[in-house]
Write a protein that binds this DNA or RNA. Sequence first.
DNA 1: CGAAGGCTTGATAGACCTCAAACACAGTGG
DNA 2: CCACTGTGTTTGAGGTCTATCAAGCCTTCG
Lengths: 250, 250
Amino acid sequence: MAELTNLHPERNQLIRKIESIADLSEEEKQALLAMPMTLKKLGADEDIVRDGDRPSECCLLVTGFACRYKLTAEGKRQIMSFHIPGDIPDLQSLFLDVMDHSLGTLVPSTVAFISHEVIYALTRRYPGIAAAFWRDTLIDAAVFREWMVGIGRRSAYTRIAHVLCELLVRFRAIGMANDHSAELPVTQAEIGDALGLSTVHVNRVLQELRGDGLITLRGRTLVANDWEGLQIAGEFDPTYLHLKKKQAAA
Amino acid sequence: MAELTNLHPERNQLIRKIESIADLSEEEKQALLAMPMTLKKLGADEDIVRDGDRPSECCLLVTGFACRYKLTAEGKRQIMSFHIPGDIPDLQSLFLDVMDHSLGTLVPSTVAFISHEVIYALTRRYPGIAAAFWRDTLIDAAVFREWMVGIGRRSAYTRIAHVLCELLVRFRAIGMANDHSAELPVTQAEIGDALGLSTVHVNRVLQELRGDGLITLRGRTLVANDWEGLQIAGEFDPTYLHLKKKQAAA
DNA sequence: CGAAGGCTTGATAGACCTCAAACACAGTGG
DNA sequence: CCACTGTGTTTGAGGTCTATCAAGCCTTCG
């Protein structure tokens, strides 16, 4: 993934992401780079698509950070996934006409919209792109499964260690983390909404993780002081991310 | 879906299932009916594929009941989905080489194995089949999302009411439930493992649901005495199942 | 009929929640 | 430059939902 043209930084993000999970031919890469898309800037905490919508385009996250979430009847929020630049968080809308959840930004972000028809055409013409996109949605589901185990069966301590591991690995895969440190784009409340915990409890467990020497967390900067230990504490095994070899752990 | 040939009951299950979520041309139906597959009978609580495996075939559930699950380090089990006849629970193995979870039966079942190559060939030749299968895996993910909300943010009472609703609707979609009653193929322990609850607590909440006149449960027979009320109690909205119109609620 | 699995019940404990308030820090505006 | 505001973090004190442990009971089925 060395020399991507710098003409379309938003497309390069996408290529980098796809190449972290699948192989593309040169022709397929060119086709992706040529996709028509319209850019849009958004502030923090803005919805991109809402539960109940019937979108006719998919959203590529170019910069920033986003999440998918649902609200319960009593107004509680469950975040179901975090998304980083290069992700197409609502790719599923290609075949599921009604949104069964919402997609929103967590920090100021830029997104690119690509019409369903363009994507259809691409997948019809290039089986490799279809396979890569399908695989992407399958990995999505794999992450849901992993989170479900955490929320259902693991302690708050383990769960929090686990997301921190996941975020670090995923940031590394797109070059947004050095070694074992990264800028966390999420608040403690958002971590709570993702893991089914209260903000207060997240805060206390975070202190415990610090006390155990696993992490330091100053401002938004997360450092895994003991990467090995953090993985063990979080029962973290990156297999479920289905990254191509190199990108994985270490 | 009136007159399916009775020559291959295992294939008809599949067609019925696919037709509950997508449209198939006559030619595509014939292609599915012609797929080579090998049948196998299994007892209760037997694994079909295991975490870590690299399967070269997919499994079609013909009769019985199955679930996908993971075990935590301490040996706790999280069930991530239930599967009914017609489902292909490990379709994701088509593009994710390593299993990140296990698939097992809950009652004596028959399954049919279809090689990945056969499915590849079919999806390459028939875009409609590819779309239907892709859509199936996307619905899978939609169910994961819904469960995540339940486990993370809803009370045990709501969660249990919710699964009961889901099971009833899905059984109805394949003709295995009359009105608002069905044979539950799961134990209370399994419901607990699916919802992140202990067996004891499942039992107590079930009694509460009975006490509130929402259900009766004698042996394995579940009756939703108050279907409306049960849906409200479970905050159940079948949209996330993405069934084609007719099959949905009522 | 006996065994085995599943269901039910009671008592106790603990993980995590809720409420409430104080603190820290960054950005805004006078 | 310094109050002023707003978000996010931290701390304290209960409270509760759900887990765990331990029996007893009921079906089902060989």
